[in-house]
Amino acid sequence: MPSRESRIAIFTAFTLVCLAPAQAQSPYGIGRVATPAEIAGWNIDIDREGDNLPPGSGSVSHGREIFDQQCAACHGARGEGGIGDRLVGGQGTLATPKPVKTVGSYWPYAPTLFDYIRRAMPQNAPESLSNDDVYAVSAYILSLNGLLPADATLDAKTLSSIKMPNRGMFVGDPRPDVKNPACMRGC
């Protein structure tokens, strides 16, 4: 049997836990704490500012080699598209009757290129390229779109600093944007 003092201490501790802000509780006690190393291994998404881009770098010329080997079969020798999306060109077409959406013409943020290639490309072997290779391929695709010089090298800082041409063209959801008067008779 615990002493009266220790019972009071336990009661006080229990009360403090209950009175702590709701977000500090784990109501069900389910799951285990994720370690920093575990999080680091899985936390691969990169936002539009390029936060969380990894160390490393790659040149346009090295990117061309990787692209020829790993990407051209689906995306075309110069990114003109095939089984995979067209990646190059189309700038200035979005407001025309034949819009062409590519990395160069449509993608609003350059760091997304690194994020997507690393997580999902090449389609037959995603997450197989080194970070240096992903920087290089990103550099090559940006270069094909006239957004990087042919002798450029890309890293976290330079990728984050690229301003994509279509960046300012995205707007929020204004729907409902279409009104049907719901005529019942004599329509």
């Binding site: 936002d47 979005l94 959406k101 997507y116 063209m169 707007v171 929020g172 204004p174």
Partner: peptide, 19 residues
């Protein structure tokens, strides 16, 4: 701002803007 919420699954309007 993943690829699937920027280059895909966004809605291109006739004026070139995209929702």
């Amino acid at each position: 701002y993943s690829r699937e919420e920027t280059s895909k699954y966004t809605d291109l309007m006739p004026d070139g803007s995209a929702r």
